[in-house]
Design a binder for these strands. Sequence first.
DNA 1: CCGTCTATTTATAAGCT
DNA 2: TAGCTTATAAATAGACG
Lengths: 226, 226
Amino acid sequence: MSMGRNKLLVKRIESPTTRQVIYSKRKDGIVKKANELSILCDTDVGLIMFSPTGRLTSFASNGRVEDIFLRFINRPDELKGGPISNEEALEDELHKVNRQLREKQEKMSYYNPNVEKIGSLFEAGVHQQFLENAIQHIGQSKAKLVGSRIVQQPNDDVEAAPFCVANDDSYRDESENPDIRRDPSSVEQYGEEICSMGPHLSLNFLKAQKNWNLSGGGQAPKLGIK
Amino acid sequence: MSMGRNKLLVKRIESPTTRQVIYSKRKDGIVKKANELSILCDTDVGLIMFSPTGRLTSFASNGRVEDIFLRFINRPDELKGGPISNEEALEDELHKVNRQLREKQEKMSYYNPNVEKIGSLFEAGVHQQFLENAIQHIGQSKAKLVGSRIVQQPNDDVEAAPFCVANDDSYRDESENPDIRRDPSSVEQYGEEICSMGPHLSLNFLKAQKNWNLSGGGQAPKLGIK
DNA sequence: CCGTCTATTTATAAGCT
DNA sequence: TAGCTTATAAATAGACG
C-alpha cells in the first residue's frame, strides 16, 4: 500500500532500526498530507503520533491539538445545538476529571481513612473490611510467589525485606533540541510516560509518604513498621 | 504536492463541490496512511478531521481517540505550541487535576493493587505493610470509640471476612495484543461518552457488594460515610 | 452522489555517501 | 546518524457512467 522499490506488505516491521526509519519518513508524509488537506479543504485536522521510541509528534491545522480534540469531544453537542466554545469544552473536561478525582479519593478513603472522621464502630469495621480484603489479595499473590507457604503471616517475612526498590523515575531527560518546525504546528516531544495505574513501587512514592494522615503521630511508613 | 492529472498548488479550493470531493478522497487516503503507520511501526496514532461541511472523521490505531489524546495531554512537559488565551488557565487546571488523578491512582494501587502485577515478595510486602499500617490506625480509632479495649486485635473480628473485592480499574487492561488488527477504528459522524471511571464508593457501590458482611453481620450500609 | 479508469504527480524503500 | 538519489509503488485529479 505504500511505495518504493518493493511492494509493501502491511505488517509490523520487526527490525527496530528499520521501524524507526520508516516511522520518521512516513510521519513526515502524513503530517504533510494532513496539512495539505487542511489548506485545500479549509478544515480542521488534528493528528497525534507516537514514535516506536515514544517520541510524540502532533499536528494541528489550527493552533493546538487540544482545540481540535475538544471540538471532537463536543461533537454531539455541536450537532444538537449551536457550537460550544472551547472554554466551555475545557470546563466540561475539567469537571469530568475532577469528578474522577473525587471518586478516586472517596474510594481511597476506605483504605486510608482519616481516623478523626470515623464516627462509629461500624464505620471502622467497614474500613477494616476493605483493608482485610486487600491483604488477603496480597497474601494470595505472595503465596503464589513463594510456592504456597506462610500465607497466613502477613507480617513476619516482610520484616527482613531488603530495601531495594526497583526502577522508575527518570523520564525527564530532554537530551536533545526538539527542532520545532513551524509549518502550521507540528510538534515533537520526547519522553515516554508510563502512567499505568498498576502498582509500581517507586522511591518517589515512598518518600512522599511522610504525611500519613493519622492522629497519633503518623509515622513515615518505613517498611519495618509493625 | 499531491498527484493526479495536474500539479497541485496548496491553496484553498474555492469550488465547494470540488472541495468536498477532494476532501473525501484525501480523507480516506490519510486514514489509510495513518493505519499503515500504526501497523508498520506498531505505534499509537490518533487522527481527527472535520469535513468542509462539518462532518467528523476520526481514526485511532488503538481503541478510541480519547485514549490517544489522554496520552498526549498527560505529557509531563508541554511543548504544544499555539495561541495563548483565557483558556490557558483552564487548561492548566485540567493538566493539574489530571496529574493529581494519576498520583491518586498510583497511591491507591498500594492499597488495592492488581495482584497479577505483583512481581516479587518484596513488593507484596510493601503492599501488606501499607495495609497493616492502615489497619492499625483503624484499630486505634476503634479503640478510642469503644473506650479502650481490644486495641491490639485488628484482625480478630474481621478474620472471617468474606472475599469481596472493591476492584476498581475501569480502563486499563488493554495490554499488548497486536494480533487482532481489526479494521482501524475509523469512525465517522460522532461518538461521545468518555470513560466514566469505574465504580466509585457510594452507597450504591456498597449495596452492590453481595459479599458484604462484617463479622457481626453487617447491616445494610447505613454508614454515614460519604 | 458514488464507483471506475487513467494519466500524472507524489511518496517513499533501498541504496549510497 | 542523517541526508541525498533513484527506481517504483501509491495516491489521486479529472473525466465518465
